[in-house]
Design a protein around this nucleic acid. Structure first.
Length: 690
DNA sequence: CAGTGAGCGAGCTTCCGCTTGACTT
C-alpha cells in the first residue's frame, strides 16, 4: 500500500479517485509540529535551535497518521509546493517517524498533474525548510520578546508582531493624517448649454489659457466674478474629440482580491468571506481559497472558453494569460469555480451567502476569459469669451460592446452628449457656481487594509483575516459606521511606543527585506541561523537598553487632582486595555475607578448636546452597543441612539424622526424618537415622506 | 417591539502561518 500525505482533508477524496486503490490518501490538517505556545521555545545560546513539540490539536491527527504509516510500503509527501508545505513534510517525517518516503508536488489536482508528480519524486528541499525555520523563529523572537515588554510598560495582554504591528501602524498613520487635515474651500463653475440637438453640462477648465488648479477656484469672490463674466459670454464649440476606449476584465480572484470584492460588493467582512469560501471549497464548488496565485489550469480554461462561446457568442471570448504580481509561491491556482460551466443559478442547496459568493467567484473567473468592454468617449471643448477667455469641457461615454461586463458589471457612467458640431454656437441656459470643501482622507476598511498589506508583501492569504481579528481582540482598533477602522487610545499608545523604540517592527519594508534573506536561504546562498544571528544581535541589545530606558510614567503623562470618593485617598490616571481611566492609588485595597473626562470621544467631529438639560452628550457603551448619554448622568438620564440618521419623519406625529431600535429580545424595529409622546412603531422601514 | 450608564489594575497574557472548527454581519 502507498500512502499519500496532503495538507487539506478535502483533497483526499479526489486524489484517491485519481490514484486508484493501491493508494491511501490522508491529510495532516496543516502544521503538525510547532514551537510551544507557553514559552519561547528557542535555544538562543545553542545557535537558535528550535524546540518543536506536537501541539495538542495535532495529536489526534498524528495518532491516526502513524498507524497508516506502519502499513505503508512507501509514503508520498504531497504537501503544498511552497515554503510552509516543504516544512510540513519535513516535520511529518519526524513526527511520524517515516523511514521510506518520497516528496512529490503538484499545483493542480488533475489526473495528469498528479500522475506526472508521482513519476517525478524528489527529496526534501532542506534549504526551503530552513527558510521556513528562519521565518518561524524570527517571528517568534519578535512576538515573544516585544509582547512582554508591552505588558510591563503599558498593560497586560498586549501584543506586537512583524505583521500585526505594521497593520496597526497603517491605521494609526491614517488617523493622524485625518487629524492634521485642514479642509479647504473651493468652488466649481459649470454651464448648462444648448445646441441644436439638446442640452449638456460643461465644467470650467481654463481662464485666459491658465488651467484652474485642483481642486478648484479658491475664493467665492473669484467664483462670483467668473460666473458673472460667463453670464454675458458667447459660447462656441472649439473641438470635439472622440475616442474608442477599451477596458480589460480583471484577473480571477486571489484570497486578497476575493476578500476585497466580497467586502465591496456583498458587505462581507473578510473572516466571514473565508468561512463561506471554506464551505464552498468543501462542497467541491470552488478551488482552494487560500492562494496568491493567478494561475488557471488549462482544463478549466477550456471549459470556460466553450461556456462563453456557447452562451454569449464567439466574439465574447478572448485568450488571456494573467501574471501574478510580485513574488508569489504559486502553490495553488487562483480562486475559481471548480466547474466553470456551472453558473450560480444552476447550483442547488446553497445558503444565501454561499450562493452570493459563488456567484461572485464564477462571474469574476468567467469575465477574466472574456473580451474587453468597448465604449466611445466624447470630449467637447467649449470656448467662452467676454472680459476673459474661458475653456469649458464636457465629456460623455457610451457603451458600444459590453464584453466581459455582461457577466461582471463594472461601474462607469454612461451619459450621451447631444450631437454638437464643431464651431457651432451654443446658447447659455444657466451658470452655476457651487461651493465645496476638500474632504479628509478616508479611513481604511478591512478590504483596503488587506490590499495595502498585500502590496507590501506583509502577511499571507491564510492570515489576512486573523490579523484583522487580532487588532480588534487586542482593542487596538475598532470599527466605526460598521466599516471604517479607527485606532483606539491603547492602539495608538502601543503604536507610538513601537515606532519610537523598535521602528523595524512597524516598518513597511521590514518583511520585504526579510523575504529577500529567506530567498537567499532557499537558494542555498545564506545560512538560516546566520540570518537570525544578524537580526538578534541588534535586537537583543536594543531590548536590554529599552527595558531600562522606557519608563512607565513617561507613557502615562496625564495627571489628575481627583480625590477618591470612597476612601478619600489620591487617584491616578491609568491605562487599561480599554483606554485611560482614573483609579484609586491604594489599589488593590480600594478598587474605586472613574472614567476620564466622563467618556469617550465622539465618532465624528460634531458635538452633540442634551435636548433636556443642554449638557454635552458623551459616547457610552452598554451590552447592546454604543449610545450617547448625557454627561450630567445620573442627574439627567437622557440618552440618544447612535443609529445612523435615517432622515425619515415620523408618519404619525410628523414631528419626530424615525430611529432604528432594538427590543429586549434583540429584534430590530423602527420607532419615533418622540417616544413616549408618540408611540409609533413599525417592523418595516417606513417610506420617506416628502 | 421601548434597553442601555463596562471595566480596565493582578491573577501570566504573546508571534506567524499551515489547517479546520460553528454559525447567520
Amino acid at each position: 500500500m502507498h500512502l499519500v500525505l496532503v495538507e487539506s482533508p478535502t483533497k483526499t477524496k479526489t486524489l484517491e479517485k485519481f490514484l486508484g486503490k493501491d493508494y491511501k490518501v490522508l491529510a495532516s490538517n496543516g502544521h503538525v509540529r510547532d514551537l510551544p505556545k507557553s514559552k519561547l521555545g528557542i535555544d538562543i545560546e545553542n545557535n537558535f535551535e528550535p524546540q518543536y513539540i506536537v501541539p495538542v490539536k495535532a495529536r489526534k491527527h498524528i495518532k491516526s497518521l502513524k498507524e497508516a504509516v506502519k502499513d505503508a510500503d512507501i509514503v508520498y509527501l504531497a504537501t503544498d509546493p511552497d515554503r510552509e508545505g516543504e516544512a510540513i513534510s519535513y516535520h511529518l517525517i519526524y513526527a511520524l517517524d517515516i523511514k521510506n518516503y518520497k516528496r512529490i508536488a503538484f499545483n493542480e489536482i488533475t489526473k495528469s498533474a498528479v500522475e506526472e508528480a508521482t513519476k517525478n519524486p524528489r527529496d526534501i528541499d532542506n534549504d526551503l525548510v530552513n527558510a521556513q525555520q528562519a521565518r518561524r523563529v524570527l517571528d517568534r523572537l519578535v512576538g515573544y520578546k516585544l509582547s512582554p515588554l508591552l505588558w510591563k510598560k503599558i498593560t497586560r495582554g498586549l501584543s506586537a508582531g512583524r505583521v500585526q504591528s505594521v497593520a496597526l501602524r497603517i491605521i494609526v498613520d491614517k488617523e493622524r493624517e485625518i487629524e492634521n487635515f485642514k479642509k479647504e474651500e473651493y468652488w466649481s463653475v459649470s454651464a448648462l448649454l444648448s445646441c441644436s440637438d439638446g442640452d449638456f453640462l460643461a465644467g470650467l477648465r481654463e481662464e485666459n489659457g491658465k488651467k484652474i488648479e485642483k481642486p478648484g477656484i479658491k475664493t467665492e469672490e473669484d467664483a462670483k466674478r467668473i460666473k458673472e463674466d460667463l453670464e454675458g459670454a458667447s459660447f462656441v464649440v472649439n473641438s470635439i474629440d472622440q475616442k474608442e476606449k477599451r477596458r480589460n476584465p480583471l484577473p480571477p480572484f486571489t484570497t486578497s482580491t476575493m476578500q476585497q470584492e466580497a467586502f465591496k460588493r456583498l458587505r462581507f467582512p473578510s473572516g466571514f468571506t473565508m468561512r463561506v469560501a471554506q464551505s464552498l471549497y468543501e462542497k467541491g464548488l470552488i478551488t482552494y481559497h487560500r492562494t496568491d496565485s493567478l494561475q488557471i489550469s488549462s482544463e478549466a480554461k477550456k471549459i470556460g472558453e466553450s461556456y462563453i462561446k456557447q452562451n454569449f457568442g464567439e466574439n465574447y471570448y478572448k485568450e488571456r494569460i494573467f501574471k501574478s504580481k510580485g513574488k508569489t509561491q504559486e502553490a495553488h491556482e487562483a480562486v475559481r469555480p471548480a466547474n466553470p460551466s456551472l453558473p450560480s443559478g444552476n447550483v442547488n442547496n446553497l445558503k444565501k451567502e454561499e450562493a452570493k459568493l459563488y456567484d461572485l467567484i464564477w462571474r469574476r473567473f468567467t469575465a477574466s476569459l472574456m473580451s474587453e468592454a468597448v465604449f466611445y468617449s466624447t470630449s467637447v471643448e467649449v470656448s467662452a469669451t467676454n472680459k476673459s477667455n474661458y475653456t469649458l469641457v464636457s465629456s460623455g461615454s457610451v457603451l458600444r460592446f459590453d464584453g466581459f461586463s455582461k457577466v461582471y458589471p463594472v461601474k462607469f457612467e454612461e451619459n450621451e452628449l447631444p450631437a454638437v458640431k464643431e464651431k457651432e454656437n451654443l446658447n447659455l441656459q444657466k451658470i452655476d457656481a457651487e461651493q465645496h470643501f476638500t474632504k479628509p482622507p478616508a479611513r481604511f476598511t478591512e478590504a483596503s487594509l488587506i490590499k495595502e498589506l498585500e502590496k507590501h508583501g506583509i502577511g499571507r492569504p491564510s492570515t489576512y483575516a486573523p490579523t484583522l481579528d487580532t487588532l480588534t481582540r487586542r482593542n487596538y482598533s475598532e470599527k466605526i459606521d460598521k466599516k471604517y477602522l479607527k485606532p483606539t487610545e491603547i492602539g495608538t499608545v502601543v503604536c507610538d511606543l513601537l515606532s519610537e523604540h523598535f521602528p523595524f517592527v512597524v516598518d513597511l519594508k521590514f518583511t520585504a527585506k526579510m523575504e529577500e534573506d529567506l530567498d537567499k536561504v532557499a537558494r542555498g546562498e545564506k545560512k538560516w541561523r546566520g540570518i537570525l544571528k544578524d537580526f538578534y544581535e541588534d535586537f537583543a541589545k536594543t531590548l536590554d537598553k529599552k527595558e531600562i530606558e522606557i519608563k512607565k510614567e513617561d507613557i502615562m503623562q496625564d495627571k489628575t487632582e481627583e480625590k477618591c470618593d470612597k476612601c478619600g485617598g489620591e487617584m491616578e490616571v491609568k491605562l487599561g486595555r480599554f483606554g485611560k481611566f482614573i483609579a484609586c492609588k491604594s489599589f488593590p485595597d480600594c478598587k474605586n475607578t472613574k472614567p476620564l473626562d466622563g467618556g469617550e470621544d465622539h465618532e465624528n467631529d460634531e458635538e452633540i448636546f442634551c435636548d433636556k438639560c443642554n449638557s454635552k452628550m458623551v459616547l457610552k457603551q452598554s451590552r447592546f452597543g454604543k449610545f450617547y448619554g448625557c454627561s450630567s448622568y445620573p442627574e439627567c438620564k437622557n440618552i440618544k441612539s447612535l443609529e445612523e440618521d435615517l432622515n425619515i419623519k415620523c408618519p404619525d406625529c410628523k414631528e419626530g424622526d424615525v430611529v432604528k431600535k432594538r427590543s429586549k429580545k434583540g429584534s430590530l424595529f423602527y420607532a419615533c424618537n418622540k417616544y413616549p409622546d408618540c408611540e409609533f412603531t413599525s417592523s418595516q422601514k417606513p417610506k420617506k415622506e416628502e
